[in-house]
Amino acid sequence: MKKTDNVSELAEIARQIRINVLKMIHLAASGHPGGSLSAVEILVSLYFSKMNHSPSHSKTDKRDKFVLSKGHGAPVLYSVLAKCGYFPEEELWTLRKFNSTLSGHPYAPSTPGVEITTGSLGQGLSQANGLALAGRLNKDDSIVYCLMGDGETQEGQIWEAAMTASHYKLGTMVAFIDNNELQIDGFVRDIMGIEPIAKKWEAFGWHVQEIDGHDFGAISSAIEKAKAEKERPSLIKCRTVKGKGVSFMENLAKWHGTAPNADELKKALAELGVA
């Protein structure tokens, strides 16, 4: 797997990841396209540019770790892991099938490259903190990355974990919020408002940055700034578009958890340059 900082190379990888996300959800006939597509650039930047990781690393090797706290984004994580060589691309087409290694939500014991099991929202940040604390005890200053949904931060446990990361001065913690402003039942602001996001996390002791979550340059420099922050955990609030990259899916709650049918898939792939 080749790492790159070149924005057009990363954009091409992102395009391929989007294609696989849509194909796998279509074949599974269920899954979550909206929140997978909004997080593509974040994961592509991490896995193809920023993170120290490799499929040849063993469970005990020093490496950066990624926790997909919003576990329903599994398709984007699986697509990225397959492209990195953690498992063959063909496995993507078994998503959600009986006895597949790719469960509906990330399951560490069965999927190479998945560090932490998630799916029940609100539980990933605590586990990421645990990884960061274990790293500290092991004198390993690898970074622990964690991606949360904005709706997910309505969970109380997120705020317990936010306190923990700052109390224990987890400078190796870099968390993202995929701030696509939608959840299942509608807009986050209508369901249960979470603003002001930045002020809240700052008040909890975090170093906070706000960026465009589809801009590779912005993601890259925000990660570098976050890594330079050694005393505080870092939050990168990413403005994103749910369903990004497929015009008819963008900004619609409906595409949170609906699989595209054959026609919709064809239309979507055409938009992504598949003839």
């Binding site: 932490i116 586990q127 903190n129 645990g130 604390l133 274990a134 446990q157 974990a161 306190m163 923990t164």
Partner: peptide, 12 residues
């Protein structure tokens, strides 16, 4: 949070 943090420590 304690249970989650414990799980993360175990993963580490």
């Amino acid at each position: 949070d304690m249970m989650g943090t414990a799980a993360g420590l175990a993963a580490g």
